[in-house]
Computed example of a mutant assay.
Amino acid sequence: MKILILKRDKLGDMLLTTPMFALLRQHFPGARIDVLANTYNAWVIDGNTDVSRVWSYQRVKEGGRIHWRAAFAQLRQTLALRAEEYDWIIVANGDASHRAIKRAAWLGGCNLVSYTDAKNSHRKVNHPLEIPRQIHEARRMANLLTPLGISLPEVLPPLRFQLPAEAQTFANQWLAEQGLTPGSYITLGLGARRAKKQPTTEQIIRWTRHFHEAWGLKTVFMWTPGKSDNPMYPGDDETAQPVLDAKLPWLVPFRGPLKPALGLIFNGRTSLFPDSGLMHFAAASPGGVLGFFAETDVSPAPAQWGPVGPRARWLEAPKAVSQLEDASVFAELESLLK
C-alpha cells in the first residue's frame, strides 16, 4: 500500500500530526507512508521512522514575491507524484482547505480523504469527512484515518520529534558560555503574538524570582526576535525590553532563531510558554511544558490546541494571562519538577 499525506501547515501543526503517522505505521507496518510538506515545516519530521519519504517543496509566493523556479519545481514534482500512483492521499488539515484539497486533487491517487464543507471540496474527494469541532487537533488529524479502517484508540501515540544535531551542539556551547548546565534552569518564552496570552513584566519578575529562591533554578528568557509591526513575522522585542531593563541576576536572555531555541528548551528542567508552536515542541521535550491560554471564547481553546503528552499542563485565563494567580502557576510547575 502507498499512502501520501499532504501537510502544508505551521511547525506546531506538523508536530501534532506525528501521532497520525504512528497509527498508520502500527496498522500498516509494510506500507509506504510518504509526506508532502513545504520546506518551512518538513524538517520537523526529520528522522521520523514512521515516515518512508518526505517530499518537500518551496512556496511559490513568499514575502510578496513570486519565485518562478519554485513554480516550475512544483510542476515537476506534481508530475513525479502522479507517477507514484498512490492508493491513498490524505489532506491533513484540521479544517477544510480549498488550496490543500486542490493540490491533493492534482496528484491523482485512487482514494482522496479530506475534511470538506460547503465552500471547500472537490469532485475527486471520494472520502469526504465532516469536520469534528469538539476534539483536539492531534485527534482531528488521526480521525482522517477512519476511511482506511483505523479506529482511534482512547489515547493517541505520543508526539515524535528528534532534536536536530545542530540544536544540541548550539545548546552545549551556549549553556557553557552562560555558566549553565542541563536541568539547571526553566525556560520562559513570549512565543504568542497576542499580548493577552503573554505574562506581564511584573509576572515574569515575580515568577523567575520564585524559581530562583524556592527551587534554585535560573530562567532562560526567550522571545521572538523583531518588531511587533512586522507583517510577515511579528516579533516581541518591545515586550521583552522591560524585562531586560530589570537586570535580574537569575534571568539569562536568549534572542535567537528557532532551532537553537529548541536546543535550550530540550535541555531545560521544564518550560512555560503561551499558546504557540514553541509550546507544542516544549510538550515533546523531556521537561514538558506549562502552556497559557486566554479569552478562549474568541481565541483558540486548549480543548483543540492545548499541549499534549505526559508532561504537558496548561492554565486558562478569562481575559488575559495577567489574571492568573501566582500560586496556580507555581503549583502546576511543581508537578512538572517532580
Rank of each mutant, 00 (worst) to 15 (best):
L129M: 09
G306V: 01
A22G: 12
F330S: 09
A294D: 00
Y233S: 12
P128R: 10
L175H: 05
F266N: 09
A118C: 10
L36A: 03
W43V: 02
S276W: 00
R82Q: 14
F161E: 05
V308A: 02
W223V: 07
E202N: 13
Q304E: 14
F221N: 11
Y115H: 09
A195D: 12
S97Q: 03
M279A: 11
I90H: 10
V298C: 11
V220R: 04
A70H: 13
L278V: 11
T39S: 14
L107P: 01
Y185T: 13
R209L: 05
L163V: 10
D9H: 09
T201H: 07
A320T: 15
A96F: 02
T181H: 04
Y40L: 13
P307D: 05
P29D: 09
A22Q: 15
G64W: 13
G268K: 06
G191C: 02
S56M: 04
E238D: 14
W106E: 12
R69Q: 15
F28D: 04
K196D: 08
T17W: 00
D34C: 05
D275N: 10
R313S: 13
A284D: 05
W55V: 06
N230V: 10
D245A: 15
E316N: 06
L272G: 04
K7D: 03
V54S: 03
R193M: 07
A165L: 10
P199M: 15
R160S: 14
E334A: 06
I3S: 11
F330N: 07
L24E: 00
A105N: 08
I101C: 06
A331F: 05
S97K: 09
H27Y: 00
M20G: 06
F292E: 12
L337H: 02
P164H: 02
E137K: 05
L188M: 11
A331D: 15
L336Y: 04
T17D: 02
A104G: 07
V243F: 12
L244K: 08
M222R: 09
A22H: 12
A142K: 10
A320K: 14
W43C: 08
P234H: 02
S328I: 08
W250A: 00
L107F: 03
P182T: 00
D229N: 15
P286C: 08
E130S: 14
S328E: 07
G30P: 11
E154V: 03
A80T: 14
L272A: 04
P132L: 00
H210N: 11
L262V: 11
I265E: 01
G63A: 07
L315T: 13
V60A: 11
Y233V: 14
